Simulated scan of single mutants.
Amino acid sequence: MNVPNMITLCRFILIPLYLLLFFSDIPNRMYWSFGVLLLAGLTDVVDGYLARRSRQVTQLGSMLDPLVDKLMVLAVFLSLLLTQRVGFVATAAVFIRDLGMIVTTAFFHFQRKATISANLMGKMTTVLYYIALFLLIFDQPGAEMFLWGVIVFSFLTSFVYLFQFKLLNQKWM
């Protein structure tokens, strides 16, 4: 196992740590939980950079990296839903999109189809989600409206990925 993949695997540990901090009674728990979320984002950038720089991009890493990202986002949205910082419909939209991406990626991976690496739109979606999560965690005005813009953009990004996948593999499933 290479270093970028080990970093990706370590990011899985950050998911329960985020939840533990978010639902704890410790002082400044929102800052601590958001710090863990930022650490997950930074290690995502680092493992991707290391994989590309050292030419250690693997099929396993290409599947696990977006999986851990989406699981973290789902955990955060679940915590925000349970504390009424975000509505059910917005959370459901995020869950449907991200679970759809997880299932689709896994299906294509196990069918030995070529998968699509993150493109600029995918990376922008991630950054925009982090901004939305910051706004939601800290109860900022306009947070949910901003989130809806990000949700629409994320679905558009998903359609672009599906189109690219179709072109790469030359047929639907």
Rank of each mutant, 00 (worst) to 15 (best):
V57A: 05
T58I: 03
Q59S: 06
Q59F: 10
Q59I: 09
L60Y: 00
G61Y: 00
G61K: 01
G61H: 00
M63Q: 03
M63H: 07
M63W: 00
M63K: 03
L64T: 07
L64S: 08
D65G: 12
L67H: 04
L67Y: 02
D69F: 03
D69P: 08
M72N: 05
M72Y: 06
M72L: 13
A75C: 05
A75K: 02
V76K: 03
L78N: 10
L78R: 03
S79Y: 01
L81W: 07
L82R: 09
T83N: 13
R85Y: 03
V86D: 02
V86T: 09
G87P: 04
G87W: 01
F88K: 05
F88E: 09
V89Q: 06
A92P: 04
V94G: 02
I96H: 10
R97I: 05
R97G: 06
R97H: 05
R97V: 01
L99C: 09
L99M: 09
M101G: 08
I102Y: 03
I102G: 02
V103S: 11
T105H: 07
T105M: 10
A106F: 14
A106R: 02
A106P: 01
F107S: 12
F107I: 07
F108D: 04
F108M: 14
H109G: 00
H109D: 00
F110L: 03
Q111N: 08
R112N: 11
K113W: 04
K113L: 14
A114L: 04
T115A: 11
I116E: 11
S117N: 07
A118R: 14
A118H: 07
N119D: 13
M121A: 14
M121H: 15
G122T: 10
K123Q: 15
M124E: 15
M124S: 13
T125D: 13
T126N: 07
T126P: 04
